[in-house]
Every structure is written in C-alpha cells, then in structure tokens.
Deep mutational scan, measured.
Amino acid sequence: MQIFVKTLTGKTITLEVEPSDTIENVKAKIQDKEGIPPDQQRLIFNGKQLEDGRTLSDYNIQKDSTLHLVLR
C-alpha cells in the first residue's frame, strides 16, 4: 500500500509499505529515499509519536495515510 510522509519543509515522500511493516522498517525506507538516519527521525500520526517496535496496523495506518516526519 502507499503512504505519504510529510516533512517540515513541506516536501511529501511517497512510500510503498505493508500494514505489517514496523515503524523501524518505515524509517529505513525514508533513509533509503532521503538519506536521513533513522535515529534522527520521529514519525507522528494523528498527533501520536510512533514507536519503532510497533507496526503500521497497530496504529491503524491505512493506505494513503499521511505521517509527519520531525527531525531531532
């Protein structure tokens, strides 16, 4: 499925993911596309910070959902 990740600069990254993917996996995909190390990434969905060990389906993230990427 496709999800979107919006950065603070207003750029939107499109990712191909599975609901069973962990947040860690998603961060690795963002690193592949953008070169941002996962330990600098914080992903936010519906105002909640997403934890590495959880999956997209844990957070009820579905296709065409938009996550927000904050760098630390």
Rank of each mutant, 00 (worst) to 15 (best):
K48V: 15
P19Y: 01
Q49Y: 04
G35R: 08
T9H: 15
F4W: 09
G47Y: 02
L56Y: 01
E34W: 02
D58Y: 10
Q40T: 08
I3Y: 01
K63Y: 09
P37W: 14
T55V: 06
H68K: 04
Y59M: 10
T7S: 12
L15S: 01
D32H: 11
I13H: 06
T7G: 09
I44Y: 11
I23H: 03
T12Y: 11
Q41K: 05
K33L: 11
H68M: 08
D39I: 06
P19N: 08
D21P: 00
P19T: 12
D32K: 09
L15P: 00
G35P: 11
D32S: 04
E24V: 01
N46H: 03
K6S: 12
V70A: 14
P38H: 14
N25S: 09
I61E: 00
L71E: 02
L43T: 01
I61S: 01
V70E: 15
P38Y: 12
D52N: 10
T55P: 15
E51S: 09
K27L: 14
L8F: 07
I23W: 03
P37V: 11
L69Q: 13
G10M: 09
K48P: 07
S57K: 06
I61L: 15
V5Q: 00
F4Q: 15
D58P: 01
L15Y: 02
K48G: 10
A28S: 15
Q41R: 08
V26F: 14
T55L: 03
E51L: 07
E16A: 11
S57H: 15
S65T: 15
L43F: 04
V26S: 02
L69P: 00
I13R: 13
M1F: 12
Q2P: 07
I61A: 09
K33R: 01
A28E: 11
Q49A: 14
K33H: 11
L8R: 06
D21K: 12
I36W: 14
L56D: 00
K48E: 14
L67S: 02
K63H: 13
V17L: 02
T14E: 04
Q2D: 05
D21S: 13
A28H: 07
I36R: 06
K48D: 14
R54K: 05
K11P: 13
V17K: 00
D32Q: 11
D52A: 04
T12Q: 10
I36K: 08
P38T: 14
S65M: 11
I23D: 01
G35E: 02
D32T: 07
K6W: 15
E16D: 08
K27N: 14
D58F: 12
L50Y: 01
E18N: 04
K63T: 09
V5K: 00
Q2Y: 15
N46V: 06
T14R: 07
V26A: 12
K29G: 03
R72T: 13
K6L: 15
I3D: 00
P37I: 12
V17W: 06
K11T: 11
L43Q: 00
I3T: 01
F45D: 08
L67I: 10
I44E: 14
F4S: 03
N60F: 03
Q62H: 04
I36E: 03
T55Y: 12
P38W: 12
N46M: 09
Q41A: 08
G10T: 09
Q49G: 10
E24S: 05
V17G: 08
F4V: 06
G10N: 13
P19A: 06
V70S: 13
V26I: 14
G53V: 05
S20A: 09
L69Y: 04
E18D: 07
V26Q: 00
N25K: 11
M1E: 05
R54E: 13
V70G: 05
D58V: 04
T9A: 02
K27H: 04
K48S: 14
D39Y: 08
I13Q: 12
L56A: 06
E34A: 03
K63A: 12
S20W: 10
Q31L: 10
S65Q: 15
K29I: 03
L56G: 01
L15K: 00
L50V: 09
D52R: 03
A28Q: 12
V70Q: 15
I36L: 06
S57L: 05
T66R: 01
R72I: 06
V5S: 01
V17E: 01
N46F: 09
D52H: 06
I23E: 03
I30D: 00
T12H: 12
G47F: 03
Q41G: 13
L50E: 00
R72N: 15
R42M: 12
K11M: 12
F45P: 00
K6D: 12
T12G: 06
I13S: 07
K6G: 02
D39R: 05
L43I: 06
G47V: 05
N46Q: 04
L67P: 01
E51G: 13
T12L: 07
V5R: 00
M1D: 03
I23Y: 15
D32V: 08
K6Q: 15
Q41D: 13
P38V: 14
F4T: 08
K63F: 08
G53I: 06
L50A: 06
R72M: 08
S57V: 07
F45H: 14
I13T: 11
F45L: 12
I23L: 14
S65H: 13
L50P: 02
P37Y: 06
E18H: 10
K33Y: 10
I44H: 06
K29Q: 04
I3Q: 00
T12V: 05
P38L: 14
E16T: 08
V26P: 00
G10Y: 09
P19R: 09
T12A: 02
P19F: 03
L71D: 15
R72F: 12
E18T: 06
N60R: 02
V26N: 00
D52K: 02
R72P: 12
K29T: 05
N25F: 09
R54W: 04
S20G: 12
P38K: 13
T12F: 08
I3P: 00
V17H: 08
L67E: 01
L50D: 00
M1Q: 12
T66S: 02
D32M: 04
R42P: 10
I44M: 13
T12K: 11
Q31S: 02
E34Q: 05
L71K: 07
T14F: 12
E18F: 09
I36N: 08
T55G: 02
L50Q: 01
I3F: 03
K63Q: 12
D32P: 12
K27F: 10
Q49M: 04
Q49K: 05
L69V: 10
K33Q: 04
I36T: 14
L15V: 01
P19L: 07
I3S: 00
Q40I: 08
R54S: 14
E34V: 03
T14L: 04
T22S: 15
G53P: 07
D58H: 11
L8T: 08
Y59N: 07
L43S: 00
L69H: 09
N46W: 06
E16Q: 09
N46G: 09
E16H: 07
K6M: 07
I23P: 02
E51P: 03
L50W: 01
L69I: 13
D21Y: 14
R54L: 06
L43M: 05
E24M: 10
G35A: 15
Q31W: 08
T7L: 11
G10I: 14
N60E: 08
R54A: 13
V26H: 00
P37K: 06
Q40E: 06
K27D: 00
T9D: 15
P37N: 08
M1Y: 09
T9M: 04
